[in-house]
Design a protein around this nucleic acid. Structure first.
Length: 865
RNA sequence: GCGGGAGUGCCGGAGUCUGGAAAACGGGACAGCCUCAAGAGCUGUUGGCUUAGUGCCUACGCAGGUUCAAAUCCUGUCUCCCGCACCA
């Protein structure tokens, strides 16, 4: 639509020129609205993106209108694999690819009309940004939060790099969905586990976060309280196990070690079992780890010929190794209680190991022979030490824990599922890790002054491994410590490192001297409203929280959490799958914008459904949004005034609208805002000839302010003075809301239904008398009309509300009721009333939604005889 | 198995917190007006029955319960989507 397109261009240029959305620290209340910054890929923005960014923009614009000093920045998560892969595939440099992508992203975001503060753009691939990554790395190292360790790590062959635990989804690489292998490698880890407890605890203060995301983090951190118990190995040293169920300690009938547990080979060394055990381990370890440890995988194990001694009763139990035990959790060894753990139960059945009952239900006995599954419910301790028998097992967990500590059999501990974060990546397009290796000094961190370590740009991509490995100038350096020959670290940082603090950099993105000015960060942070996808629940959202806590402990920040409120948008699906380039089911925004104008597209995308819900793409509805925008735009031209009979009504509707939508905005109920605004626009449009100039102007002006969040360009045009984007939210004038007017229809119809209900209730076909007692406040004209004039003439032509009045009259008449009159007390009584007294009385409350200031006395009593 | 969420016309979705004419708002379909025509715009219809009434009946996943009154509150149950998953 040409006209809309012209308007868009005009205003986008003006916004840019006048720096309308640029902000500085000032005395106003600040509001930091942030969307997760995008990864700039070569393909354009599709409808999923458009919807997401529209959501953020509506909120930011709303807050701006409400008088906040709104920081709403945009940037690019510009390092990462896809750029590198594109480089290999298409033969262009990742930098070039990224620059190009960022450019096209920027253009498309601008085309969307989003009110970003463009001067603050952050690009993580700029030295100016990533040098601070390097500084941070050194700081982490200094504080003992970074360490290098040889460990079993997740390796994605397809991406040619290791991955963090969080980046493995059901055994597959989060990015390419190829199976992940386990490799023993020496890598850099970030000690996120140090903050495990705080990360868990502080979830409680994140009231503005979706429950779902918090639960996901909670289970990812996976805290469990238990006891570490020492078992002696017969003729050997001791073996520690971790258990959350010390109450079942007397029911232990075997032990199981993870095959990877180094203790295993030590134990069998030189015994006749050695070969067999080795074969078993090799077999199990070769298997895909995810499959092996899936819940429905058949349990397999092997007795290793050794026995352990239960510290509390001296019982000797056989030691097994088995596929279902995870090496990394707890001590990589478990005490098995088949009576009270389903996994142990299955294993015991398979290998014919005895089952011993030590907890039983209150009411009946258990027979270990006949049990079909383990008893895991709450019960009573039996067959254990005398002092615990008869105790409720939950209580026994506590007591036995204490007992074990007292007897020095073990100690109470806490275990987490959370693992340290592996940040090394064997890829080129990322932040170089500021480390030099040297034969003498091992791994030497660089001095701060030597930063930044620039990522060399002049390199060759042959598709084989990390090109940095072949870049001599980069590779060969002097050891900073001994000045001998050293070799630079060629691994780069996980890009989630970049995104863990970018929101801080926005506060002061051009600072050359520091990561950020503490003062500026203090003003803007924390982010008031964060918006992004739920898929980052245990990735970015967890890492960023960790960074903030760590930086706080470095003395750089003075708050505990980066994001006060979080909104997770829904995904746009097409043909049953998430819209994405790789699936080839994208609908790009450009064509649609070209045809209908961007405001229509924005309105359409947000009217579809609640922004938090996933939607299946169906472009048909755009027509409706387009019609709506046309109608809105046509309000620019005032038609001839016939009369001003609707002034009151329109003002009432207008103020009602302003009142109602504010909380909808806060709750992200944008679909509701839009439907309410549409309702108002229809009303205004319908009666535009019956309005005084003032009222019309006021209506259009206020409408354009509230609607500017959704349709900023057309609304700028409509507003006509200054920038609507910087206007003040319209003042609510509650007095103009005419409740009588607004509730008229409601009142009549509900009265009808009340009478109906009452009639049904008392089963009187022809009641002798019906009395309606109406409160003084209900001076509804309609009632007067119906009851004064309504002589049963139902044939006068009426519409709308008045139709209802006919319905009321007719209905009453049909029920055999004669004329009514309205008396001074606003009591309505049947004329031919009997003196007989009322037999039944039903009070029917007619409650109208409260308006906060004045609750209506709305109450009608219907008395029937 | 655990956790989160959802079941309402042909479709997307309001309404549920705070019980009181179910279906706001939008899409789609159908009919009419306007047009040479198309589009746009406007008007109406869109659960069933119907003698066409100002009528009756049925309906908010299913089954119960509370209540004068339930989509809404309570109990049970089914289905679907999403996340985690042998963590001892």
């Amino acid at each position: 639509m040409k006209e809309f397109r012209d308007i868009e261009e005009k205003w986008q240029k003006r916004w840019d020129k006048d720096k309308v959305f640029e902000v500085d620290e000032n005395k106003k209340n600040k509001c930091y609205v942030l969307e997760m910054f995008p990864y700039p890929s070569g393909s354009g923005l599709h409808m999923g993106h458009s919807r997401n960014y529209a959501i953020g923009d509506v909120y930011a614009r709303f807050k701006r209108l409400k008088g906040f000093n709104v920081l709403y920045p945009m940037g690019f998560d510009a390092f990462g694999l896809p750029a590198e892969n594109a480089a290999i595939k298409e033969g262009i440099h990742p930098k070039e690819y990224t620059d190009k992508s960022i450019k096209s992203f920027t253009n498309q975001l601008k085309a969307l009309g989003n009110s970003y503060s463009w001067s603050r753009v952050v690009r993580t691939c700029d030295v100016n940004y990533y040098k601070w990554n390097q500084l941070l790395f050194l700081k982490f190292l200094e504080k003992g939060l970074v360490y290098r360790k040889k460990a079993p790590v997740n390796w994605c062959e397809h991406c040619g790099t290791v991955l963090a635990n969080e980046q493995v989804e059901q055994g597959e690489c989060w990015r390419c969905h190829n199976p992940v292998e386990v490799k023993q490698l020496e890598q850099w880890f970030l000690k996120i586990t140090k903050y495990a407890d705080e990360l868990l605890k502080d979830l409680k203060i994140l009231e503005g976060w979706p429950e779902k995301i918090k639960k996901m983090q909670e289970s990812w951190i996976g805290k469990s309280k238990g006891v570490e118990i020492k078992f002696k190995i017969k003729d050997g040293e001791e073996l520690k196990v971790f258990t959350t169920r010390p109450d079942t300690l007397w029911g232990v009938t075997f032990m199981v070690l993870a095959p990877e547990n180094p203790k295993v080979m030590e134990l069998v060394k030189g015994t006749e079992k050695e070969k067999e055990v080795k074969r078993f381990i090799d077999k199990v370890v070769l298997e895909d780890k995810y499959e092996r440890t899936a819940e429905d995988t058949e349990k397999e194990g092997l007795f290793i010929g050794k026995y352990a001694i239960n510290p509390v009763n001296g019982a000797e139990v056989p030691i097994y190794i088995a596929n279902f035990v995870v090496a990394e959790y707890g001590t990589g060894a478990v005490m098995a209680v088949p009576g009270h753990d389903q996994r142990d139960f299955e294993f015991a059945k398979k290998y014919k190991i005895p089952i011993k009952i030590v907890i039983k239900p209150k009411e009946h006995e258990l027979d270990a022979e006949k049990m079909m599954r383990a008893f895991v419910d709450v019960g009573v301790v039996v067959n254990s030490a005398d002092e615990f028998n008869g105790m409720n097992n939950l209580e026994a967990i506590e007591e036995i824990g204490k007992y074990l500590e007292k007897e020095k059999f073990g100690k109470r501990t806490v275990e987490y599922k959370l693992r340290d974060w592996l940040i090394s990546r064997q890829r080129y397009w990322g932040t170089p890790i500021p480390i030099v290796y040297c034969d003498k000094c091992v791994a030497v961190p660089l001095n701060e002054k030597e930063l930044p370590i620039k990522l060399p740009e002049d390199i060759k991509f042959d598709g084989e491994g990390n090109p940095l490995l072949k870049k001599k100038e980069f590779l060969e350096v002097k050891c900073p410590k001994c000045k001998g020959n050293g070799r630079r670290e060629t691994d780069t940082m996980d890009t989630f490192f970049d995104s863990s603090w970018y929101f801080l950099r926005y506060c002061d993105s051009k600072n050359e001297k520091e990561m950020f000015s503490k003062k500026k960060v203090k003003y803007w942070m924390p982010v008031d409203q964060y918006i992004g996808g739920a898929e980052h629940a245990v990735l970015h959202l967890l890492y960023a929280r960790f960074f903030v806590k760590a930086l706080r402990d470095f003395g750089l920040l003075n708050f505990d959490e980066p994001f006060l409120k979080l909104f997770t948008q829904g995904v746009v699906y097409k043909e049953g799958a998430r819209m994405s380039k790789s699936r080839g089911n994208v609908v790009v925004q450009d064509d649609m914008i070209e045809r209908y104008g961007v405001d229509s597209v924005r309105v359409f995308l947000l009217s579809l459904s609640h922004p938090g819900k996933t939607v299946e793409w169906d472009g048909k509805g755009i027509e409706g949004a387009y019609k709506f925008m046309n109608k809105v735009y046509s309000l620019k031209e005032k038609v001839k005034i016939k009369d001003n009979s609707k002034d009151k009504n329109v003002l009432s509707k207008l103020n009602l609208l302003i009142k109602n939508i504010e909380s909808d905005f806060e709750n992200f109920d944008f679909n509701l805002v839009l439907s309410k605004v549409m309702g108002f626009v229809n009303y205004l449009y319908k009666f535009r000839e019956n309005l005084s100039e003032e009222v019309y102007k006021e209506s259009v002006s206020k409408l354009s302010i509230v609607l500017s969040c959704f349709a900023p360009h057309v609304c700028e045009e409509l507003y006509g003075e200054d920038y609507v984007s910087l206007a003040d939210w319209p003042q609510l004038n509650s007095k103009k809301i005419d409740l009588e007017l607004e509730n008229l229809e409601n009142f009549v119809s509900s009265t009808i239904s009340d009478i109906n209900n009452v009639l049904k209730l008392v089963k009187i076909e022809n009641p002798k008398k019906i009395t309606l007692l109406v409160a003084e406040e209900w001076k509804y004209k309609l009632y007067e009309k119906v009851l004064k004039e309504g002589k049963g003439d139902m044939k006068f032509k009426v519409k709308g509300k008045e139709k209802e009045s006919i319905k009321l009259l007719g209905m009453l008449k049909k029920k055999g009721l004669p004329k009514f009159i309205l008396n001074q007390k606003k009591e309505l009584e049947a004329l031919e009333s009997e003196k007989e007294f009322i037999e039944k009385e039903f009070k029917l409350k007619l409650e109208i939604k409260k308006d906060g200031e004045k609750a209506l006395p709305g109450k009608v009593q219907i008395l029937i005889e």
